[in-house]
């Protein structure tokens, strides 16, 4: 049955539906399974977790609504998808904001990251954890990118518009949203010259076959935010909430470990295949980019929130 029994009496397990949109091989799914394993074990079967990968249950465009409606109890979207509820979640897209992965991690577990998680409460949504995924890098087929001028006249594929459009505009490049499934072909045929993505996506989609230059820019991040809904959460006893929090904490550590390994492994794969020239932006080069990208900061500072931006900048 599909019934979601939240009372948990009469030995009927409390069913938790955890829905996400990525494949079973990903750290996200593995961590969701870890969460399932730990919670079911620690609660002696009081909780039963069903994990639905690959948009099987709800896709990108409806999982948030399904969560609010309590038709699912956990989702783990890319944090920038939450932008339809709160602009502040675009923070991971703001170019060259975080110094490195460590500073992103500190920001997320710190005061402001946690405040951001709680900011969705008026919408009936509770942020439970940040699941780090990976830094974003640029690839293109024209030239190695070392300075902002290198972007002039190039066309880039983006996963969504808004801030990312503005980022490329400030760099003097064009941008177009193209579905991920069509990206390989679009790059191969020159519909667009480049794209920005995580190393793992570039590696697994073999984009190095159709791109010549990879620039490790770490200019933004693709991280996930694990969300539950307050209706479900408030129906639980404090003990049950603690069981969930504990399982989530361990699942989160596991996810971050897997994601980090995957990022490094993918870089290795790309290097070993040797089909794409890789360069890394130095700190001084990044400063040049920050100057050119100032208009993006100016435009989004109020939308995202100055305090968050400052905290992220100073996060170490």
């Amino acid at each position: 049955g599909s019934s979601t029994n939240t009372s948990g009496t009469d030995n009927k397990p409390i069913i938790i539906k955890f829905s996400h949109v990525v494949a079973e091989s990903t750290p996200k799914h593995q961590a969701a399974l870890k969460f399932k394993e730990l919670l079911e074990k620690n609660s002696n079967g009081k909780f039963q977790v069903q994990v639905f990968p690959s948009s099987q249950l709800y896709g990108d465009k409806e999982e948030m609504e399904a969560l609010q409606a309590n038709n699912v109890q956990f989702i783990a979207p890319l944090s920038n998808k939450v932008v339809s509820f709160s602009k502040s979640f675009q923070i991971s897209d703001l170019p060259f904001l975080f110094q490195d992965e460590k500073s992103a991690y500190s920001f997320y577990i710190g005061e402001n990251g946690q405040k951001l998680l709680k900011s969705l409460e008026p919408k009936g949504i509770l942020g439970v954890a940040w699941w780090l995924n990976a830094q974003k890098v640029f690839t293109n087929s024209k030239r190695p990118i070392t300075k902002p001028e290198d972007f002039k006249g190039l066309k880039f594929r983006t996963q969504s518009g808004g801030l990312l459009d503005d980022q490329f505009k400030a760099l003097g490049a064009g941008s177009q949203t193209i579905a991920w499934g069509d990206t390989y072909q679009a790059l191969q045929n020159g519909t667009v010259d480049g794209q920005e993505n995580t190393l793992n996506n570039i590696d697994t989609a073999k984009l190095d076959e159709v791109q010549k230059y990879l620039t490790i820019s770490n200019h933004g991040r693709n991280d996930y935010v694990v969300l539950t809904n307050s209706k479900f959460w408030n129906s639980l006893s404090p003990e049950d909430q603690k069981l969930i929090n504990d399982a989530m904490k361990q699942a989160t550590d596991y996810e971050i470990k897997l994601a980090g390994e995957l990022d490094r492994k993918s870089l290795e794969n790309l290097q070993n295949r040797g089909k794409i020239k890789i360069n890394t932006l130095s700190d001084s080069q990044k400063e040049e980019f920050k100057k050119v990208l100032q208009p993006v900061y100016d435009k989004y500072v109020d939308l995202i929130g100055k305090e968050y931006i400052e905290a992220a900048k100073n996060s170490k």
Binding site: G1, S2, S3, T4, N5, G59, K61, E62, E65, A66, A69, N70, N71, A179
Partner: peptide, 25 residues
């Protein structure tokens, strides 16, 4: 069937109908 179940929030049916069309492809 979703209605009999009683646990499903029904306006999500309307949401699903719209969202299933929401694709450039």
């Amino acid at each position: 069937v979703l209605g009999i179940d009683g646990q499903f929030t029904m306006y999500m049916v309307a949401q699903r109908m719209f969202a299933s069309l929401l694709s450039n492809t």
